[in-house]
Design a protein around this nucleic acid. Structure first.
Lengths: 204, 204, 204, 204
DNA sequence: AATGAATGAGCGTTCATTCAT
DNA sequence: AATGAATGAACGCTCATTCAT
């Protein structure tokens, strides 16, 4: 009985799967539970996705496409880099990644498994860093970078720029819960720290 | 220090479990596989551990105890903070965490699951940071810190100090594989970055 | 003779189903695979056939009808029994059955299942034998046969006449593959054997 | 709760599986049904067999071994070929194969599927024919046969000797049911036919 | 301390079938 | 006449766990 459009069903499955995977991990989430939570029959789920892996891969593809297409880390209202205060820029970046924290958790969890060749998290973050790079500097400058300088830049941005922020958005809830402290305070502390460490290192 | 056969078996199970959990995640690793890889009977495994959870919890306890007891981040040969060059100190820290990267991956993976109350990774890192804090400063100074300053310090150390390093040790293999680059080079780049960002922020 | 699109679709489904059933058995062939291989929608398949069983039954009906209507075991060109050399007659019989080997395999497989009441293979072969009987002898002679003599004849023809030939057409490919030998050679050997055994028994 | 010996369980599973496979085919028989019929848990079944295929393969192995080891087609009491009347020899052969009709049906059904590389039925019958060959003739004579003569012999024995008998034991129940006739009568008719055709061809 | 056997619930997946459009 | 979507039962198989020996 096709009461609903197929694409809507597919979207609902993806939404629910993203939530459940981020809550219990990929292996910890049964297909039954996804189907039930999405309000669809298990067989129907397999009409839309060839297997369980296809679900997580669709999720990966979705975030990749979104980064590729939509990313714009400027705060709303601003249209040029120079107009923006660094604090606002970071805040808006954190805000964006915070919206994506579910899929980011999943990506990170899966990439941490050393026994499989998954590297979507790195691939994804590579895109983010390169987008940012092209966004902040003139084309010629970027293209004149040596392979080695690029790697140096990537390592720097990934491990001391991206990872603190990703850790923050994916772990801040548990952090606040564990230390029984206020989310806003922690955000404030994190901003200070991040500016003092990673951001300062840019300006030198 | 295992004296009986039973303790040896138990130790072997834990070793194997740590390896497998870090490779395929907790939920991705079956008890059968642990038993087979450890060369013990499945029933025997249940003689030593009450259930699968007991295995991972033993692993957590083990790393906690180790941090509590053994941690000494001074490079070999040095006995006082001032004698040590900051580069050597970081290197020795990375070396130590690198040895523990399996259990750290597991801890991080499990803590990333937002749907369960696991926070061992945070608890563990709290211990590391506090050890370090007491190690670097005089007792009175530490105890005179306000609750707020402590949190500020914790946030700073965790997100911009610990997390870059943990990310590095747990992801460097995949990073090098993905970018097809040399481990030593990446370590060098990371050290530079880390000193330039987190470490510089200490000295200001 | 299909005049409408629907009949063409139906025919294509039957063709594909015959192929797939003979390759993987009835239970080993999914409706999805038939539909996909036939290039039709699964729902469409259920428009033409009420269920999966209906497909195989249509196949059975088709071969029954064909035997009833078309069978003519005389080699082309000949119009009377006496004109035909026995070797040619057998060859043309084998040729005919060889064309039908797919459906024959299916019939045989299904009839071998002792747990269900299917006996289409026997029914089908009964028709073949009786056709042959009427074809070779005068009507009165045939009708004068006692019930017992008929059974004796049927048993003889089925088990020592039909079954060797059916076995040959349905298994010769695997035979040649297994013994790594030439199809033509095997046909030659079979012809000799068959003439020496079953056919000789006719003439005595 | 290991109340019964493992080997007994395994044997019971094989027994039941043989029955069910011969009744409904391999694909037509669910693992659940085997387990239930054998009175064991499904999980237990998978303790003894690595997968469903392993069950059928064990069955194949069993009949192979049996043919290899035990086959003795002489009627009880006789110890030499010459002492035995041909009728008795055939009868005892039919009797033996009749005991094995379940596995023979399975073998034949599976080998009839042209889409898979299974040829156990042929392999099995090859063994039977070769055993028989060595049994009937002196060693030197057998070994002096040319490759071609051997193939000729194999084809002859398989298609006009073995297949009629196999067909008889596997289909006689359905035959009698279909024609509503007596098993003993049909056996009698078959014996006559078989002697008149295949057996006569030996003596010429 | 260890083993082999068993258990039942759940896994991911495919099945034959239905039906509104 | 055909399609896409859905359904629920069943599939083959693995899971964590138990227990008599």
């Amino acid at each position: 009985m096709p009461k609903t459009d197929g694409d809507i069903t597919k979207k609902r499955i993806l939404q629910v799967a993203e939530k459940l995977f981020s809550e219990h991990g990929f292996d910890g989430t049964g297909v039954d539970k996804i189907a039930k939570a999405a309000g669809v029959n298990k067989g129907s789920l397999y009409y839309h996705f060839k297997d369980k892996n296809d679900i997580i891969e669709s999720l990966f593809q979705k975030i990749m496409n979104e980064i590729q297409d939509n990313i714009n880390l400027l705060p709303k209202g601003a249209s040029q880099v120079k107009e923006v205060k660094i604090e606002d820029k970071i805040k808006s970046e954190i805000q964006y990644l915070n919206q994506k924290k579910q899929i980011l958790s999943i990506l990170l969890m899966e990439t941490l498994k050393s026994g499989q060749s998954m590297d979507s998290f790195i691939k994804c973050m590579e895109m983010v860093i390169k987008k940012e790079l092209h966004f902040m500097h003139e084309k010629e400058k970027v293209e004149s970078l040596s392979e080695e300088d690029l790697q140096r830049y990537m390592v720097h941005e990934f491990f001391t720029g991206i990872m603190p922020v990703i850790s923050f958005v994916t772990l801040k809830d548990k952090w606040c819960n564990y230390f029984n402290c206020d989310q806003d305070k922690v955000l404030e502390y994190f901003m200070e720290s991040f500016i003092d460490s990673h951001i300062k290192s840019h300006r030198l």
